[in-house]
Computed example of a mutant assay.
Amino acid sequence: MAKRGKKYTAMREKVDRTRKYNFSEAVTEALGTTYTKFDESLDVAVRLGVNPRHADQMVRGAVVLPHGVGKTVRVLVFAKGEKEKEALDAGADYVGAEDLIEKIKGGWLDFDKAVATPDLMGAVGKIGKILGPRGLMPNAKAGSVTFDVNRAVQELKAGKIEFRVDKAGVVHAPMGKVSFGEEKILQNMAAFFDTLIRLKPTTSKGAYMQGISISTTMGPGVRIDPLEVKNLIRFATT
Rank of each mutant, 00 (worst) to 15 (best):
84 E>P: 03
15 V>Y: 03
81 G>M: 04
143 G>D: 01
73 V>Y: 13
66 P>M: 00
96 G>I: 09
79 A>L: 10
76 L>Q: 08
15 V>K: 02
15 V>G: 03
238 T>R: 03
140 A>H: 08
35 Y>V: 03
107 G>D: 10
10 A>E: 15
159 G>K: 10
21 Y>M: 02
37 K>G: 00
102 E>L: 14
23 F>W: 14
43 D>Y: 07
221 G>V: 09
218 M>T: 14
77 V>S: 05
56 D>T: 09
122 G>F: 06
208 Y>W: 12
107 G>Y: 12
134 R>E: 11
40 E>D: 13
31 L>Q: 01
42 L>T: 13
227 L>Q: 15
66 P>D: 00
6 K>T: 05
75 V>E: 08
49 G>F: 07
27 V>L: 06
98 E>I: 10
139 N>D: 15
224 I>Y: 05
219 G>V: 14
49 G>C: 09
55 A>W: 10
38 F>L: 07
124 V>L: 07
180 F>K: 04
107 G>A: 04
156 L>P: 09
128 G>T: 06
36 T>A: 14
123 A>Y: 02
165 V>H: 07
219 G>E: 14
86 E>T: 06
42 L>E: 05
149 V>E: 08
74 R>K: 15
105 K>H: 04
41 S>I: 03
46 V>R: 09
130 I>W: 04
31 L>Y: 00
57 Q>L: 06
237 T>Y: 01
216 T>P: 09
92 A>M: 04
147 F>H: 12
202 T>N: 13
213 S>C: 11
76 L>E: 07
